[in-house]
Nucleic acid binder design. Structure first.
Length: 206
DNA sequence: AGCAGAATAT
DNA sequence: CATATTCTGC
């Protein structure tokens, strides 16, 4: 069945183009070398270990160790969208990465995250459909709604083959939106211990 | 010290 | 590309 591809677009165009979303991300992904060259102080950037280096010459970009990628809820949402829109078949690290179009994002980044995301999905399926909301764990994954077709059996008890959805009028798209309480933890900084190394949270969902 | 999350190795 | 293991920050 190809029905799952039908209602992508309305969602897609809303989620996809978010240059503002990308800016903070790319900041975090700037190489230390590049950041130095531009006098950028990256909050997410820890002090480069080149204690004896004079920063005189620029090293090849491929040799540089990229800073550890932080998967913000926004970035994860983009990830989920990409996977959703690609479909399970084509949702492989490479294509996901390409669709996300995040500067500096590598295939390994996506692959690693995809692995964990699959484990998360499996975990959710293993548990009953209505038992636990979720553990305190899985913060990240819980931050973004999981597309229905990711799970073998959605939240319905009956699978209705002939549903017409006529009562879902077009002027009521909200039924898909799923309000979601959204605890809105604001993520909070780890400590007020002086400095926070965490990434910023625009918390602008939509 | 123990866990969660990302990187790296098979 | 998927899975397992290791590494790192909290």
């Amino acid at each position: 069945m190809r029905e799952d591809d039908s209602n992508w677009f309305w969602k897609w165009e809303e989620e996809l183009p978010s240059p503002e979303d990308l800016m903070p991300l790319s900041q975090s992904l700037i190489t230390p070398d590049l950041a130095l060259a531009f006098n950028i102080q990256n909050p997410n950037q820890q002090a480069p270990p080149n204690s004896s280096a004079e920063e005189g010459g620029e090293e090849p970009a491929r040799t540089l160790k990229r800073p550890r990628l932080v998967w913000t809820p926004q970035l994860h949402k983009r990830f989920v969208d990409a996977v959703a829109h690609l479909g399970i078949k084509n949702a492989v690290p490479k294509t996901i990465m390409q669709l996300m179009s995040v500067d500096g994002l590598t295939r390994e980044n996506v692959a690693s995250h995809l692995q964990k995301y699959r484990l998360y999905l499996k975990r959710m399926q293993g548990i009953s459909n209505n038992t636990p909301a979720d553990a305190a764990t899985d913060h990240l994954f819980a931050s973004s709604p999981v597309p229905p077709h990711f799970l073998p059996r959605p939240t319905s008890d009956h699978f209705m083959p002939f549903v017409h959805f006529r009562h879902f009028s077009t002027d009521h798209p909200s039924f898909i939106r799923q309000p979601q309480p959204q605890p809105q933890p604001q993520h909070t900084n780890a400590e007020d211990n002086g400095r926070k190394i965490l990434t910023l949270f625009p918390s602008a969902e939509d």
